[in-house]
Amino acid sequence: MAKKRRKFTQCPNCGYIFEEVNNFCPNCGQENHDLNVPVKHLIAEFFEGTLHFDTKAWITLKYLILKPGLLTEKFNIGQRASYVPPFRLYVFVSIIFFFLLALIADNSVRLNGGKPNSEATTVLPGVTISTNQNDSLIAAAADSAALEKVKTITQDSKELQALQSEIGENKFASEFADKFAKFTSHGDESKQKLFKNLSFMMFLLMPFFALVLYLYYRKQNRNYVEHLMFSIHLHTFYFILLMVAMLVGQLLPTLEFEGVVFLIMGLYLYFALRQVYKQSYLRTFFSLLPIGFAYLITLAIFFLSTIFVSVLLT
Rank of each mutant, 00 (worst) to 15 (best):
M243I: 10
A146Q: 05
Q192K: 09
P116F: 13
P125R: 10
F237G: 06
A145E: 14
L71P: 00
A162C: 00
E226S: 15
D156R: 13
L205P: 01
S157M: 12
N221D: 00
I138A: 07
L282R: 08
I95V: 15
L213G: 03
L252Q: 09
R88D: 05
P86D: 04
F262M: 03
V248E: 04
L211I: 04
I129C: 01
R222I: 09
L103N: 07
L103W: 06
T154M: 12
Q161M: 11
L263F: 12
E73R: 07
G187T: 06
T55D: 08
P26A: 02
P290D: 08
R88P: 00
A146L: 10
Q164D: 10
K151T: 12
Y83M: 07
N170G: 06
I153T: 14
V109E: 10
Y16D: 05
M1K: 03
D54Q: 07
M265A: 09
A2S: 09
N221Q: 12
I232W: 04
F203V: 13
I104M: 05
Q79M: 02
Q220M: 10
E19S: 11
S190G: 07
E166W: 03
T152F: 01
L71V: 09
T236V: 10
L296D: 09
A300D: 00
T55C: 03
S231M: 07
A181Q: 06
G113T: 08
L247N: 11
E256Q: 13
H186W: 00
P290W: 10
A102S: 09
T284L: 11
A146R: 04
P38C: 05
R218M: 06
T55R: 13
I291L: 14
F99W: 02
I291S: 02
T298G: 10
I307F: 11
L35Y: 11
C14G: 05
Q30Y: 01
R218F: 05
R283F: 03
L101H: 04
A140V: 15
F87M: 15
A44F: 03
F239Y: 09
A139V: 01
Q164R: 06
S94I: 14
V260K: 12
C11H: 02
G259T: 13
Q155N: 04
K219A: 07
L282P: 01
E20V: 13
L251T: 14
C28N: 09
Y281D: 02
E175M: 01
T122K: 15
A105F: 02
I232D: 01
T314Q: 08
Y214L: 10
V260A: 15
S231L: 04
F24G: 06
I307N: 03
A2F: 01
N76W: 02
T131R: 10
I129G: 05
K7N: 12
K191R: 15
G113F: 04
L51T: 14
R283Y: 04
K193R: 15
L64G: 02
A141Y: 11
G15V: 08
N197E: 06
A120T: 14
L313W: 07
C25S: 09
R283M: 04
Y216T: 14
F286V: 13
C28H: 12
L70P: 00
F285K: 02
F46V: 12
K62I: 11
L252V: 08
F303S: 14
E119L: 06
Q10F: 02
N13Y: 00
G69N: 00
G249W: 04
N132C: 08
N223R: 14
Q164C: 00
G249F: 04
L61M: 06
K193V: 03
S136N: 14
S280W: 06
F176R: 06
I153E: 13
K191I: 02
